[in-house]
């Protein structure tokens, strides 16, 4: 699950996998802009068949922030 998540993030923000970890944050990655954020959320929702509530989207800052939706 973690690997799949990192794979999706890497594809969308166009950063090689080896440079990413769960701790990577938006601040460190220039290409993780607000458009990429939308793209990412929707890709993760569609791939894991989950819903991330719109109210919580601004709180997603690190890759690890996605994990809680995947586990639930």
């Amino acid at each position: 699950m973690k690997a799949k998540l990192l794979g999706i993030v890497s594809k969308i923000i166009k950063v090689p996998l080896e440079n990413l970890s769960l701790e990577t944050s938006r601040q460190e990655v220039e290409s993780w802009d607000s458009f990429a954020q939308l793209y990412l959320i929707s890709e993760i929702e569609e791939n894991f068949n989950i819903v991330i509530p719109i109210e919580e989207i601004t709180q997603i800052y690190r890759i690890s922030d996605f994990m809680k939706y995947l586990k639930e």
Binding site: L38, Y39, S42, E43
Partner: peptide
Amino acid sequence: YSSKLWYLGGIKYSNA
């Protein structure tokens, strides 16, 4: 379609 992307970014389509 994705209503979430629509409300967040004026995008009609889901990624799919």
